[in-house]
Design a protein around this nucleic acid. Structure first.
Lengths: 236, 236
DNA sequence: CACCTTATGCCAACACTATTGACCTTTCGT
DNA sequence: ACGAAAGGTCAATAGTGTTGGCATAAGGTG
């Protein structure tokens, strides 16, 4: 057992690196985020990260068990940023909406990172805090426990799933992204009404709509359905 | 220009490999799918694929420009299988539900492959056919065009997003998947009621629920909300 | 202040990876 | 039957994550 990873809290000595940098989990993750932004989602490598930090690549294994562990930490930091400074207002529906949009936005701010981490469960502190907040809103609103868990599950998975999907298209290389966006013009808008009557009928609407995220719409629909269910529950 | 890739249609000579195997795009893609299933989503490497085919790894570059090109071809194949043999029944809500579940299921049948390709937009024929069918169902049900496009967009993106999310967790290496599944037991079920009252209160429900896909729930909520909107539209 | 333990950074090495350019051999149209 | 070139092979390059051993400085203890 050559390299035990010491938890950040239990870390006592802070020996500076050859170049004088003092490492920490937080610094490593923040640097990784910067590298992802600059070099794309395939540009995060242990070697490059080491160089960017001014430390030997192998040093990182004192902080993270492997690159997988590092990506989980990156994901947790994104959730942490989404939740930073959030406070509920008492209106469960507005609060949930705000929370979903915040998480979605936090991921889209770092699309290359989001692609790597959005579909992983980290179980780290920020993620747990978010889950606690969401469940609190639902139970506080009067959802019975079973229903609260159902809605919570749909809400959080939908939010992360959309974050990953939308991030993926933002993370494409400039050239590929433009090609995707112009697909709607080039392909869908030119289909014959004879073979594709429905697409042809709404083509202008499609072109206008498809390059925005559908998340806000889908989120509102989920919340509407939840509210409907809540009313019928209270009626009983 | 050392290695021009010849399109499958224009391919004329079929020289057998040292081991006597005759290559083709189709054979390569099918073999890649098998390897993904057997060795996990990180187990598809040019070297291994070459060995599995009984050919030198570099031979594959005669068929695909790079590994990225190969994954696109794999994705193409999945999309083709998703819609095969579908027919509507006339009940728009049931039909949409069926369609969503089919697409979701088709991806989950090859989770390791889905992970690599799920957040790419193809714009190819099968995808167009699905879009036409969905828009037809919504417009046939009486949604005004603008509303039909909104619901269509939310529906298709949500379906693909969940397919990617759920495929990702199925595609994790056995060890990591068990770790993720046990996270709910190991981490969430042990949080103190003092610090995390809501999670603690519903912990057993979470453990029971979180390892299934939330897609059916989210899909039903989306359809419920759409149906509500449709009723109020018809009332006008 | 000096000492000793040990946490932590560094180095070298390993077994991989994708990709490329040069070479050679088989295939097919003429 | 011949010659062009498609297509398979080989060798090499530059990169990857990861690990074991070593050196050194930090910080508690006397």
């Amino acid at each position: 057992m050559p390299k035990p990873v010491v938890s950040e809290a239990a870390r006592r000595r802070r020996r500076p690196t050859k170049n004088g940098v003092v490492l920490s989990e937080d610094l490593i993750v923040r640097t990784a985020l910067r590298m992802l932004r600059e070099h794309g989602s395939a540009g995060l490598t242990v070697r490059r990260l080491g160089i960017a930090l001014g430390a030997d690549p192998s040093t990182l294994y004192r902080y993270f068990a492997g690159i997988d562990d590092l990506t989980l930490a990156i994901g947790d930091m994104l959730i942490g940023r989404a939740m930073a400074g959030w406070h509920g207002t008492g209106d469960w529906r507005a609060d949930l909406r705000e929370l979903g949009l915040r998480i979605h936005a936090a991921y889209l701010e770092h699309p290359q990172a989001a692609v790597l981490t959005a579909n992983r469960i980290s179980g780290k502190s920020h993620e747990i805090a978010a889950d606690e907040a969401i469940l609190g809103l639902l139970r506080g609103a009067g959802f019975p426990d079973r229903e609260a868990v159902r809605v919570y599950h749909a809400f959080i998975d939908m939010t992360l799933a959309f974050a990953a999907l939308d991030a993926a298209s933002l993370a494409l290389p400039e050239q590929a992204r433009r090609a995707d966006e112009e697909m709607w013009q080039a392909t869908y808008a030119r289909l014959s009404p004879a073979t594709h009557p429905n697409i042809a009928a709404v083509a202008p609407l499609l072109v206008a709509d498809m390059n925005d995220s559908a998340y806000p719409t889908a989120l509102d629909m989920l919340l509407t359905s939840a509210a409907t269910g809540l009313r019928s529950h209270k009626a009983c």
